[in-house]
Design a protein around this nucleic acid. Structure first.
Lengths: 175, 175
DNA sequence: CTTTTTATGTTGTCATGTCAACACATAACG
DNA sequence: CGTTATGTGTTGACATGACAACATAAAAAG
């Protein structure tokens, strides 16, 4: 744990003595959480547009296809935990992939609450096709970043995720 | 423009010689774009939950309140450009804020397509109240980050935003 | 001056992701 | 063994953000 002092909160604010006697608020380009949400929204919109135009699928379904490749034969609840998305949305995405012939369920016990999902052959082929393009696009997004910078960025985003998860787990009622 | 080589694409992939002869796909903790979206989703959900429980407003409306504080008397299209969100969503958010007595329009020319929006006194008070808490929460999210690390993270997120915007502007059809 | 183009804000519809409720089976408790 | 709690997957409703279409006024072009 670093012992360094955090930034003074005024760093994150617009200058309250600026023109027109404006009130202070968050300065967009000084707040990591603002930039994070902006960048992610912009990325998702761009990816969604590209995926839909070329393949007729949504960003969520692509993400689910990656999940099923990493871990075939996976139940909804496990996928929800790993991918960090509500099981209702996971359930719907898998249903869409199933309807499109890209994924199939197994129900060994006959109880549909003991389902597990895998990609079909068609799904595996589509996944491979999109993967190449997804990597290509990410390379463009990382243009100008050195290897060290990518590793640093990954590490920082990972730490942000952990800190946000800590807030999720109820460490926030101390104010 | 840096002359450094980008990472080899296999860095971003799961090990294809791993257990069970799995196919390669994106490794979640090695892909900045995956981590970006995960972190932003997690942050937004956490913030949305907090804002709704305490103040009965959504994350989008809070974001709009910040916008109106930075730039009072702003039209929908300008707000849409600055905040990077579709004007339809901006229009709806402003309507909600208006209904809740937090924002008000000016229509000097009588033409409702020449509207501009500002916070009401009630809106300014709520903004001030939420701002303190938002800064506090961001400090917790940045726990363990040094001043230099925050500046580095801001810069990197800014560069990602620029690169994604370049993709938006049609530099992607070269494949 | 007339026609065409552009910009604006609103509304309908859709994808994404959340929250809640439900039915039902299994696990845990007394 | 009976009761209670927990986990699972589905579905309804909602917030967020996008895309498209529309009505209308102003700007630009001829």
């Amino acid at each position: 744990m670093k012992g360094l002092m955090p930034l003074d909160p005024t760093f994150f604010l617009s200058d309250p003595t600026g023109p027109g006697d404006l009130l202070p608020t968050l300065e967009f380009d000084r707040n990591p959480t603002v930039l994070l949400v902006f960048a992610a929204n912009r990325f998702t919109r761009n990816a969604a547009r590209f995926l839909h135009q070329r393949y007729g699928i949504g960003a969520m379904d692509w993400r689910m296809m990656v999940m099923l490749t990493k871990e075939p034969d996976i139940p909804v609840s496990r996928a929800s935990k790993v991918i960090g998305i509500d099981k209702a949305a996971v359930s719907r995405s898998l249903t869409r992939l199933h309807k499109n012939g890209l994924a199939e369920p197994k129900i060994p016990s006959g109880d549909s609450r003991r389902k597990s999902w895998s990609l079909t052959e068609k799904g595996r082929q589509l996944h491979k096709e999109i993967l190449d393009l997804a990597l290509h696009r990410q390379q463009k997004i990382l243009e100008g970043f050195s290897e060290d910078e990518v590793l640093t960025l990954n590490a920082m985003l990972g730490r942000l995720l952990e800190n946000i998860s800590s807030l999720d787990n109820g460490e926030e009622e101390s104010e």
